[in-house]
């Protein structure tokens, strides 16, 4: 069935816009027989932009992200990356995990290079790349430490560096800052934005924090509670050229946060 079905699907690539590196078409997911996590999701992720999936806990954000990553099979629908249907994980996507998912027995250097180790890059090359990204995320000097010797924020920097090191076009980040304290979180958000402005990645970012979503995103997708549906798509019109502190005081920023809050509030009753 695979080859027969794949051919027309591949032909359909002409329909996908070149500007959207990832497209999600009609994705539904049911766990077991009765847990309906996602319902007919259609989404496009523009190349080089940061899209946030925002919604209450349990609405299916992680499920959607893992389907895009190829780690979970959808019950219905298809995901396209570069116009090709997703059948599993691929080199053009890299995942940053909510719980960091670092190897406790490996040093920072090996953890950051682990993606390259799995794709059989020679040791010298992967260590060079790993060192470069360890520097980029601000962990220089910690190469030989083990994860248990790092704070939560530093561990997630390792997770981010590992995802950057495989040089994927799309970064999938599942609540990367949820296990990080507030101060570290702000600094991390700023560093992430800076890093992304240099690296030109497409990012799909999951969060349940409205402020975080508005602060980091070009596009925000609001999901409704289970079964997750797209409630609204918002493009905050905030210039990225102003300083982080100015963004947080910016009127558009504050209005957008307020608008989303009013919108989501009705789900809380």
């Amino acid at each position: 069935m695979a080859s027969a079905a794949a051919a027309p699907a591949y032909k359909g690539t002409t329909e996908t816009s070149k500007d959207n590196i990832v497209e999600v078409r009609n994705i539904s997911k049911t766990y077991g027989t009765d847990i309906h996590a996602l319902d007919a999701i259609n989404l496009a992720f523009p190349t080089g932009q940061m899209t946030t999936l925002l919604g209450p806990s349990g609405c299916g954000k992680t499920t959607l992200l893992k389907i895009i990553a190829g780690l979970l099979e959808p019950s219905d629908g298809q995901v396209f990356v570069h116009g090709r249907p997703v059948t599993g994980p691929g080199p053009e996507r890299a995942f940053v995990f909510q719980d960091f998912a670092l190897l406790p027995w490996a040093t920072v250097l090996r953890n950051v290079g682990f993606g390259l180790e799995l794709t059989k890059h020679p040791k010298s090359e992967r260590e060079e790349k790993a060192r470069h990204y360890i520097n980029e995320v601000g962990l220089a000097g910690f190469e030989d430490k083990y994860p248990h010797e790092l704070s939560g924020g530093m561990r997630q920097r390792v997770g981010l560096a590992r995802a950057m090191a495989v040089d994927a076009d799309v970064l999938l980040m599942d609540e990367p800052f949820s296990a990080v304290d507030e101060q570290t979180r702000r600094k991390f958000q700023e560093d992430l934005l800076h890093l992304l402005s240099v690296e030109r990645k497409t990012v799909i970012f999951v969060t349940h924090s409205i402020e975080e979503a508005v602060y980091v995103s070009d596009q925000i997708v609001l999901l409704s509670p289970r079964p997750g549906r797209i409630h609204a798509t918002i493009r905050p019109d905030i210039s990225r050229d102003i300083s982080p502190d100015d963004i947080r005081r910016n009127k558009t920023y504050l209005d957008t946060v307020e608008e989303i809050w009013t919108d989501l509030r009705k789900y809380l009753d």
Binding site: L71, R93, A94, F95, D99, L118
Partner: peptide, 14 residues
């Protein structure tokens, strides 16, 4: 750890 197994798969580990 299922989370580490998923990590290995996501980076295309065999």
């Amino acid at each position: 750890s299922p989370s580490l197994i998923q990590m290995s798969r996501s980076f295309q580990g065999t």
